[in-house]
Nucleic acid binder design. Structure first.
Lengths: 236, 236
DNA sequence: CATCTAATATTGTCATACAAACTGGAGGCC
DNA sequence: GGCCTCCAGTTTGTATGACAATATTAGATG
């Protein structure tokens, strides 16, 4: 999920970036669940960095809408409502259908091969019902499509959206029937990409995201109906 | 362009936010042109705040892609290529047509009235050929549409895109013929909104953004052909 | 048991400090 | 004169410590 830059030039790896990616992971994985309060001092200890760095990391996560400020200036993991999820998936559909079209048109051989490899791993994980693994691989698939589309802007806009729904994916894939349906969707996408058929690839992506959206929105709406939790604490 | 929060509760106005909005303005207005290097110490002096605050502000602007890190860690005002601009406008078209549809469906009377008022000011400024003014009002128009669409997600995704092209708008509107064409476009949008015709409003927005895109991309391509400036300094 | 008050935590901001990387120049060398 | 090297000054990244203004909690009190 996280790739170290292997570029020869320039990458003294910043403490801040490390902190950001740790926090992102903690949120994606659900270690810090939606609504959990993030206390600077605790994060300093947990990450072993100074408050300076933690604060800069938080500012960035804030811009990415992974965390939000509560009424009293507290920083909480962002809560995604059913409405939010519906909108995010709608926008993802717009962006990622466009992205996969460009992937078909612009990707080089290595990129297509790499995508196929990811797809293969996906199928394998799918057969094992390993949700966490599956979610991580799916993330990588989407991301590779975005990268192969070779548009800085599309990447910059779509990537944060991916990050925001990351932690929802595990649950959505656990919806009954979602797994099998999912398999066909991934296959269709991959096949269209390899056939170089942009229209079909885009349509397959659209179908996939619409189905994912339906599953996630349904789940969130069900959640919202049952529970209005007042406060949630972070996992220790 | 910048509205102070008038909410009764909670708004001790942070130094950091002040810094962010000052910097945003400086970039939008062209005071800090694309490529200009932003030196922390200078910003501290200019803004009269500590390095801590400046750095946190920069992190945020960085997430918003208004500034980017140069090869050796320097922070520069983001340079937008013709390709970037084309993509940004493509995405804006997707998002803002959706937004104006929702505006038509969901806005209340006050919001429609406010939008009409902005439109009126727009027309006035247009007749005076006051580009800077015009750009600011146009910004407000787009923003009000986004707000009236009542989708947190759409707003969060589209708003940074608006900010990124802000400084380009002045130049694009100066393109010959763009002004008059622009007037018709705005009128069409406003009329459709007031008629409650979502389809027509969306189409008008799409046409408007496509035209704006064409003007800006043409301008940027022309620029890129003539000059490959090595370094640019910030205005003092 | 409800409330008010005092002790404690948390956030926002500033001032410093210092290492590492980078920049620009002064001299020195050919 | 042109070129290279090494030194001093910049700039960024990070850590600390301090302090005011609020929140939150715990306690004391009726």
């Amino acid at each position: 999920m996280e790739y170290e830059d292997l570029r020869i030039v320039d990458t003294p790896s910043l403490v801040r970036d490390h902190a950001i990616s740790k926090l992102r992971n903690a949120i994606s994985s659900g270690l810090y669940p939606p609504g959990a309060r993030l206390v600077e001092r605790e994060l300093c200890e947990a990450l072993g960095v100074s408050r300076t760095s933690v604060r800069e990391a938080l500012r960035q996560l804030q811009s990415e809408n992974l965390v939000e400020v509560g009424r009293r200036r507290s920083i909480n993991v962002a809560v995604i409502t059913a409405q939010d999820a519906a909108d995010i998936y709608m926008i993802r559909e717009m962006l990622e259908t466009q992205a996969i079209r460009r992937f078909v048109a612009l990707s080089d051989d290595a990129e297509r091969k790499a995508l196929a490899a990811v797809h293969k791993r996906l199928v394998k994980a799918l057969s094992k019902n390993d949700m966490a693994q599956l979610s991580a691989i799916a993330s990588e698939f989407y991301e590779r499509v975005l990268i192969g589309a070779k548009s800085r802007v599309i990447y910059e806009v779509a990537r944060p959206l991916l990050a925001r729904v990351n932690y929802l994916r595990i649950r959505s894939m656990a919806e009954p029937g979602r797994l099998d349906g999912g398999l066909k969707e991934w296959d269709a996408m991959m096949e269209a990409v390899q056939a170089g058929d942009a229209d079909r690839a885009a349509e397959a992506m659209a179908v996939h995201l619409r189905n994912a959206r339906a599953a996630i929105v349904a789940r969130l709406e069900a959640d919202e109906k049952t529970a209005i939790p007042a406060k949630r604490k972070a996992a220790s």
